[in-house]
Design a protein around this nucleic acid. Structure first.
Lengths: 211, 211, 211, 211
DNA sequence: AATGAATGAGGGTTCATTCAT
DNA sequence: TATGAATGAACCCTCATTCAT
């Protein structure tokens, strides 16, 4: 079967494999050593390739960090959009967003370290990330909050942009805290109490009364 | 007058002046260049001292970052504790904490950059900070939240530790967002809407009804 | 026709074509980028072959430079020897040598750059070239000068080896100057005035008187 | 005495000493290894300083080469101008130029290797050198040749710029040849026969007759 | 106490060359 | 014969820190 594939497809698949292997190795090494103390040669060894091979797939050490961010956020965004579509109301959607956010990192502690610590080491990275993919994530959250406001579930007088930052800030702090504390509690289990606080905080009074 | 002071007091005062001058210079340079791109010689020049003089006051470049953190958090904690004492109830105390947190950075954007970005560049720093002074800050917040629960203002079933992280996470995200967006909005003005969401999220239902 | 040729001749011809294509590409790229900044992959692209193919025809990047030198000097030497045979006297022969030397580079500026600059980057190359093919070129010049001395045209007391270096040095400087100045003057036209100076410098006094 | 000098003068003198020590070491190492194979750390060791110290005095490895060229040509030009002033006629001046040129390198073979080989490794360097200091040297030679033409010693119809290149080309080839041949002949002794050829080549016929 | 010249360890990246296909 | 992806050795330069003055 594989032999019948055109050369480009075969080598393309191999290329993608190696690309992912390097990226996974980079996440591991960045998490263990920190970005600045991580040696490119160490990543190469962890990925099972030669030092120079890294540079056939990535432009620089910086680029590895950028790729980790973009690959992850891109994938998560797509998954989140697909998952939200199937859900009936904004509260369910917020719950799903929180669950996906927390479980993404709960499943891969190394990724969590890279996202909560290593990616934030400089305004250069942070501004870049904020402006690009993170903006899409914020947009997705905001659209759900706006929907909740339109449906009369959330108070309409609260700025949806502010509420989005509040929602993200809570999730972000939970992950950071989980990463830094060496206790290995169940991160995903925090979705419920967080949503409880956030949604009550956002809720219309009379809406609550009707419950 | 000064000449009459004992030598140690005089030089002690001079010493403290230079210490602070270096620390202020470090905040400026770290904010402008980022920690890793900041040169010790650049900080020395900004502080008006020789390169070597830095090392008469600090052990290392790392130590400058640590000192910025500890000096600031130490001072802010003392101010916060003093301010809270004078306030009658937990809601007022939470409001004052939020205001102080936001205005600290609103008044000194360079300090905000250092706290929200540069200080988070490695797990080494973050774990150290979490364990030490930040823990005191969390403790202070938690004590106010517990007080609110005891008084029946906040729902008792919510974990106060969780609520503390939620409160801090919201504030932290506001500051980070303000630092990264190049719009210069009034950061302190966010205290009100944030508290609105947080306190409603925490509040007992019947307590609200009684209002 | 070609199809009727024995296999070895056919592939031999193709092989020679590719060999020359690579060499021509190397001259272009070396001239444009300089030897050290020239990438083997760039030469391969310019020659329309894969990187690895270069190594089926040449042992190393160094070897390309050596081959350029040896191919060119070998060809020029053969042409020069043939051309000189037909000429009656040593003065005509010197004139022809100068013309051939200058027009070789006037016709191919890239070759001139490689010969005047890139080939001289290290004593390793220069000593190798001096000892081998350049020695033949010097020998050819010297034989003409000796002939002129034997015929009483040039002063016999001048060392023919010295005169050879003088002759070559003048030509060499003309080409180098032409390569480095960005004016595109007629290099070949310099043959006459150069020979005027050189031949008068070498000539016997009484020989001149007889003219 | 030295102790009485102002600090700047003392340290200035030490600075100049170290500058020259590094430059001399660079000439030695470049001559022995070739520019590209020379390691900066090797130069540092040869100069008795740390690697980093090189960069307190020079901007880059390239800069070392440039400095060797500019220091040498600058010094030689000044010496040559001073020496020529004392001489009565252009022929004596040309002889002195040739002697100085040849003896400069005869006295320092390493310098000769650097000038004849290492400095010519790229059009980047060569064009830079041609345009700047070498142009001054050419100008000096040309002025002497023009003087000889004005005095009726040299033929006026010969382009003085061409004659300058001829003169330089001869000297240059002598030095190159001396550098590449491993025989250690007396380079300076070549001044006489070279001048014999060059000056006869340039001379007016009737002028000769009058001799 | 203050200076600033000197130190020297340390690593991302390039690219000639190889070799499995 | 030809390919081009993979290799891995090799090095200039920076800059935190020291220490003689």
């Amino acid at each position: 079967m594989l032999a019948a594939l055109p050369r480009s497809a075969k080598s393309g698949a191999k290329r993608a494999d190696k690309y992912r292997a390097i990226l996974r190795a980079a996440i591991r090494v960045f998490a263990r050593r920190g970005y600045f103390n991580a040696r490119v040669s160490e990543i190469a060894r962890a990925a099972g390739v030669a030092d120079g091979t890294i540079y056939l797939y990535f432009n620089s050490k910086d680029d590895l960090l950028v790729a980790i961010f973009e690959e992850t956020v891109g994938r998560v965004l797509a998954e989140a959009r697909a998952a939200l579509e199937a859900l009936p109301g904004p509260l369910e959607k917020l719950r799903r967003l929180a669950e996906m956010h927390l479980s993404l990192f709960a499943k891969d502690r190394n990724l969590a370290v890279v996202f909560q610590v290593e990616l934030r080491q400089s305004t250069k990275f942070m501004e870049r990330f904020s402006r690009t993919m993170l903006a899409d994530y914020f947009q997705l959250i905001e659209s759900v909050i706006t929907e909740a406001q339109k449906r009369g579930i959330f108070r309409p007088e609260i700025s949806p942009k502010l509420a989005t930052k509040v929602f993200f800030g809570i999730l972000d702090e939970m992950v950071t805290n989980w990463v830094l504390s060496h206790k290995r509690r169940d991160l995903t289990a925090l979705a419920d109490p967080i949503l409880d606080i956030f949604c009550h905080g956002m809720r219309r009074r009379n809406h609550e009364a009707h419950r």
